[in-house]
């Protein structure tokens, strides 16, 4: 997968791969940010992470949405009002002006790690 490493980015250990349920999401705490972490073992990236807060529904629920694809975009549908968010970019498919933050992820020896940046930390 394409991960852009910038100098102020750090990898944070989150959990073991076995803690995740395939084809579904769960909430994760990345320092003090709420993240929605999805495990799609059939995709090359395997793990995806975006902000958990649904800006349209106004609640921390995106981890509880159904994942799938619309055309060639991998998406999660918000469980509140069903808007789709792109798992690779955080963009909302229904409303271009809306997006959620997006985090890089990797699996290292059976552990899931998420990347964060100083910018994200400072605004959290």
């Amino acid at each position: 997968m394409l991960t852009i490493h910038t100098s102020d980015q750090r990898w944070v250990d989150i959990c073991a791969v076995e803690d995740l349920t395939p084809e579904a999401g769960c909430g994760a705490l990345l320092e003090d940010q709420q993240v929605a972490l999805f495990y799609l073992p059939n995709q090359p990236e395997q793990c995806f992470a975006i902000g958990n807060f649904d800006p349209l529904g106004g609640a921390n629920v995106l981890s509880r949405g159904i994942v799938g694809n619309l055309g060639d975009r991998l998406v999660v549908a918000s469980p509140l009002y069903k808007q789709h968010f792109d798992l690779r970019t955080g963009a909302c498919l229904e409303d271009e002006s809306v997006s959620v933050p997006c985090f890089s992820s990797r699996i290292v020896s059976g552990r899931v790690e998420l990347a964060t940046t100083l910018a994200d930390n400072s605004s959290g």
Partner: peptide, 22 residues
């Protein structure tokens, strides 16, 4: 069950009805 979990709408997944605040 694991293979069915991800298929369920959030209400079925958590066997309860989600409210506006999550």
């Amino acid at each position: 069950q694991k293979p069915h979990f991800g298929l369920q709408d959030t209400n079925d997944r958590y066997l309860a009805n989600m409210q506006k605040d999550g």
